[in-house]
């Protein structure tokens, strides 16, 4: 990992070509009566690392699930390498997905296979490689994430961070064109998180992979992103290079990237989103103030909000 990340960061966008790998156009999805995606539109260019940031529980994972075809949007179009995937049959999707590598939020390793077998699985299923060739590739991928010495362990015997790294090794086993990461660095210690960031940069530079990364970790976002998109209320509030995002004059973006230290808005309307009502613009931001706690519980909970009642008079709620 001899890569110099610092210099990469300043002008990565210039390195990539401009054909879109992924195109979301007007994608909407309603789940359990809430409009999670609301005419979501953005493009991801070939070879770039597109980072999606946004408050917990707002629909970033849902965005990825729509892209993989695990969920189908209610309306709108999603194209991958120019091919419309929203109307694909399951058979066509199966073929399409071979271009994908996906790292799930929890790693999603198969419980009864050890790490070696987990990484070997896509090779076994989709190629006719010899055992030796497979072993070689598995070793290479596991060494990439520093897990070769643990190859005989089962998922239940390793830590959350190790699962995630093994999941990453499996995701890139077939050298996919497009890799999706759902919070690759959450649950990792800072050193390993940084290793993963360097790995993501290496995949972009050496293997020219297109990558979409969902993360809460701004440090990591700045390190890996060609462009950053701020997901907010079902759409992209702002898309720009790390520098543009850093210098953003949109209060909500500032609020998120500074971890709530800048651009804060009143707290009262937070309860609206927590209770599942259509939140006001600022309400969603409020939800993010407790992002760290929200993440450990899997979703933001009202209880967390009640810990810190707002002393100032509440602003009126906007109902739909």
């Amino acid at each position: 990992m001899a890569l110099n990340v610092q210099t990469e960061k300043s002008s990565p966008a210039a390195l990539v070509d401009t054909t879109p790998m992924v195109e979301f156009a007007g994608v909407s999805k309603t789940l359990a009566g809430r409009r999670i995606l609301d005419r979501l539109t953005f493009n991801v260019k070939k070879g770039e690392t597109f980072v999606i940031i946004g408050y917990s529980g707002t629909g970033k994972s849902v965005t990825l699930r729509n892209l993989i075809g695990l969920m189908r949007p209610d309306e709108g179009s999603i194209r991958v390498a120019g091919e419309e995937i929203t109307t694909m049959s399951n058979k066509e999707l199966e073929v399409m997905r071979r271009k994908f590598g996906v790292l799930f939020q929890s790693g999603a390793l198969i419980a009864w296979l050890d790490l070696f077998q987990n990484v070997e699985l896509p090779l076994l299923e989709h190629t006719k490689m010899s055992r030796r060739k497979r072993t070689e590739i598995v070793q290479q991928k596991l060494e990439l994430v520093n897990l070769w010495q643990d190859k005989d362990k089962f998922p239940a015997e390793i830590s959350g961070g190790m699962k995630k790294r093994a999941g990453l090794a499996r995701a890139i086993a077939l050298d996919p064109e497009l890799v999706l990461y759902d919070e690759p660095s959450s649950g990792l210690d800072p050193v390993i998180a940084y290793e993963i960031d360097k790995l993501i940069n290496r995949l972009r530079d050496q293997l020219k992979m297109t990558q979409i990364v969902v993360t809460h970790d701004m440090e990591s976002a700045y390190t890996i992103a060609s462009r950053i998109g701020m997901f907010y209320q079902g759409g992209m509030l702002q898309i720009g290079t790390p520098d543009e995002i850093r210098a953003s004059d949109i209060a909500e973006v500032q609020h998120f990237i500074t971890g709530g230290r800048e651009g804060a808005v009143s707290r009262r309307s937070t309860t609206a989103i927590m209770k599942g009502r259509s939140p006001t613009f600022s309400a969603r931001l409020e939800a993010g103030m407790d992002e760290a706690e929200a993440e450990t519980t899997g979703e933001a909970t009202p209880a967390i909000m009640e810990l810190e009642p707002e002393p100032s008079p509440p602003e009126p709620e906007n109902k739909p």
């Binding site: 699930r65 993989i68 695990l70 199966e94 073929v95 997905r97 071979r98 994908f100 996906v102 799930f104 939020q105 929890s106 999603a108 390793l109 198969i110 419980a111 699985l121 896509p122 299923e125 989709h126 999941g167 499996r170």
Partner: peptide, 21 residues
Amino acid sequence: AEIGTMKTSEEIDALEVMSIN
């Protein structure tokens, strides 16, 4: 319970994404 756990821990999704039925 075993399959249910696979389902809730995204293992089933992961299989589908890897085009493994």
